[in-house]
Design a protein around this nucleic acid. Structure first.
Length: 440
DNA sequence: GCGCAAATAT
DNA sequence: TATATTTGCG
C-alpha cells in the first residue's frame, strides 16, 4: 500500500542531519572525498574499504545505518552485489564508474535504491536521505501487505509483467524474490547486453532456479519500481484484509455505536480508525455482516425465548459458535442479546480458535476463544490493534460477566447449567422453579 | 458513496 | 468445491 495524503503522518523524530551512512568505497582517496562531502552535509559516515567489512557491519547492525552507499567496480562487483542481498532492509545506493546497463539494472533489481554514476556531485549525494524516509514509510505501509513472503500474492497481473527486461527485449521472466527483490537468473544476464563488463552468474549465488516452476506456470513478476521505468501505472492487486478478531471487534463496535441506520461504510471506517483499511474493505465486511444477521436472526427467533443463550443444554454445547455480535468484550466475542441471540453455524471459518479452559465465572467448565492472528499475515499484524494478552481478555470478560449479570455472556463463558442453578436455588432454600418441569 | 451481485481468490 | 473477499455496476 502506498501512503495516501490523508494518512501521512509527519515523522517527528526523523534524525535530521544525523543520518548514519555506511560508505563502502575501495579507493581511499576517492572514499575520503565522498566521505567529506557527505559529512559536509551532516551525514554521519562510516567508511569501509572492502566488502567484507562492510557486510559485517551491515549484518551485525553495528551502527544501525540509515543508508548504505556501496561502490561497484568493474573488477569485482560480486561483493557489492552480496551487500545488496544482505542489506535487504537498508536503503542501498550503488555508486560506480561502470556504465554497463546490465550492471545498473542488476543493482536495481537486487534492491539498490539508486545507481549513481561517478563522479559524485554534491547534488547527487544530498538527497540520499530520501531513501531512508522512503524506506521508513514504505516499511510502515508494508505492514499492511498481507503475505509479503509469498510473491504470488504481491503481483499477479500478467499484463503488468511487461518488465524492464521485456523492454530490453529479454524474453526471461524474472522472479521477485522474498521481500520484493528481484532475483536475476542466467537468462536475464545472457539476454541483457553488457559491453563493459563480464557478468558472472556466480555473483548471483542465491538465485535458486530449481524453484522456478517447471510446468510453465512460472509467474511473471514486476521488478520493484518497474512502473516508473516502463511508464505503466502501478496498479497492483488489492490486498486482502485479514479480519482478525480484534479488527472485527472494532468493526462491530463502530456498527453498534452508529446504529442500524447510520452504519454505513464511510462512517464505520471513520470510527474504526484503522490505518490502511479502506471504505471498500469495510463495505465488503458490512455486507457479509448484514447477510449473517439476516440469515441468522429468523432461526434465532424461533428459539425458545427462555433460552437466552444458545445451546447451554445442547449435548454439543462444548462446540463454540462464534458470532457477529457484541463489541463490549475486547477480543472475546459474546453471544447476542438475550432477546435476539445471534448464532453462527459452526461450519463457517472464523478468525477465532477454541481452546478448552478450566472454569468460568459460574464454576462451569467452559471453552474460551483466543484471538488468532494468522502468522503469515503481515496484513493481520498491521491491522491488529490493542493487542491484549489472552489471560487479560478472559479475566476481564469474566469480571465483566460477574459484575453485569444482566448482560449477555461473552462467548466462551457458558451460562450456569440448569442443574447448577437448581442446586444453587435449592441451597438458598428455593425448592423449584416453574421451568423445572420443562427441562429437556 | 451505497449496496447488491458477479467475479475471483483461497 | 465451498466460501470469503474483491470488484463492478446501477
Amino acid at each position: 500500500m502506498v501512503l495516501s495524503a490523508e494518512n501521512f503522518v509527519a515523522w517527528n523524530d526523523f534524525p535530521k542531519g544525523l543520518l548514519k551512512v555506511l560508505l563502502m568505497e575501495k579507493d581511499e582517496s576517492s572514499a575520503l572525498e565522498t566521505k567529506s562531502k557527505l559529512e559536509e552535509m551532516d551525514y554521519k559516515v562510516s567508511l569501509y574499504h572492502n566488502e567484507e567489512d562492510a557486510m559485517e557491519a551491515v549484518s551485525k547492525q553495528v551502527d544501525n545505518f540509515h543508508v548504505a552507499i556501496v561502490e561497484v567496480t568493474s573488477s569485482d562487483h560480486c561483493g557489492s552485489f552480496k551487500i545488496l542481498e544482505i542489506a535487504q532492509d537498508l536503503p542501498t545506493i550503488v555508486i560506480s564508474n561502470v556504465q554497463c546497463l546490465n550492471t545498473m539494472m542488476k543493482c536495481i533489481a537486487l534492491g539498490a535504491a539508486e545507481f549513481l554514476q561517478k563522479p559524485l556531485s554534491e547534488d547527487k549525494l544530498r538527497s540520499i536521505w530520501q531513501h531512508a524516509v522512503h524506506k521508513a514509510f514504505n516499511a510502515k505501509s508494508l505492514k499492511l501487505i498481507k503475505d509479503q513472503n509469498n510473491p504470488e500474492t504481491t503481483e499477479k497481473d500478467e499484463d503488468e509483467a511487461a518488465t524492464v527486461t521485456d523492454r530490453l527485449s529479454a524474453p526471461s521472466t524474472p522472479q521477485l524474490e522474498q521481500g520484493g527483490r528481484f532475483q536475476p537468473d542466467e537468462e536475464f544476464q545472457e539476454t541483457t547486453n553488457c559491453s563493459a563488463l563480464p557478468c558472472s552468474s556466480s555473483c548471483l549465488h542465491s538465485a535458486d532456479n530449481s524453484q522456478s516452476d517447471s510446468d510453465g506456470q512460472r509467474k511473471k513478476k514486476l521488478l520493484p519500481n518497474s512502473s516508473s521505468l516502463n511508464g505503466a501505472r502501478n496498479r497492483r492487486k488489492k490486498i486482502k484484509v485479514d479480519w482478525t478478531a480484534e479488527l472485527h471487534r472494532r468493526f462491530v463496535q463502530a456498527v453498534e455505536q452508529l446504529g442500524a441506520e447510520q452504519a454505513i461504510p464511510s462512517k464505520i471506517l471513520q470510527l474504526m480508525q484503522v490505518e490502511g483499511l479502506t471504505r471498500h474493505n469495510v463495505a465488503s465486511h458490512l455486507q457479509k455482516y448484514r447477510m449473517q444477521k439476516r440469515h441468522v436472526l429468523p432461526k434465532d427467533e424461533d428459539r425458545n425465548p427462555i433460552m437466552a443463550y444458545p445451546s447451554p443444554f445442547h449435548p454439543h454445547s462444548a462446540q463454540m459458535y462464534p458470532v457477529w455480535g457484541h463489541p463490549s468484550y475486547h477480543g472475546v466475542q459474546i453471544w447476542g442479546t438475550p432477546t435476539r441471540g445471534l448464532w453462527h453455524p459452526p461450519t463457517q471459518t472464523w478468525p477465532w480458535k477454541s481452546y478448552p479452559l478450566v472454569a468460568d465465572a459460574w464454576g462451569c467448565p467452559v471453552r474460551v476463544q483466543y484471538a488468532m492472528s494468522s502468522p503469515r499475515s503481515v496484513m493481520g499484524s498491521g491491522l491488529e490493534v490493542g493487542g491484549e494478552r489472552n489471560e487479560e481478555v478472559i479475566d476481564r470478560a469474566v469480571r465483566e460477566a460477574m459484575s453485569k449479570p444482566w448482560l449477555p455472556l461473552p462467548l466462551g463463558l457458558k451460562p450456569p447449567s440448569t442443574d447448577a442453578v437448581l442446586a444453587e436455588l435449592h441451597r438458598v432454600g428455593i425448592a423449584g422453579t416453574p421451568f423445572t418441569d420443562r427441562r429437556p
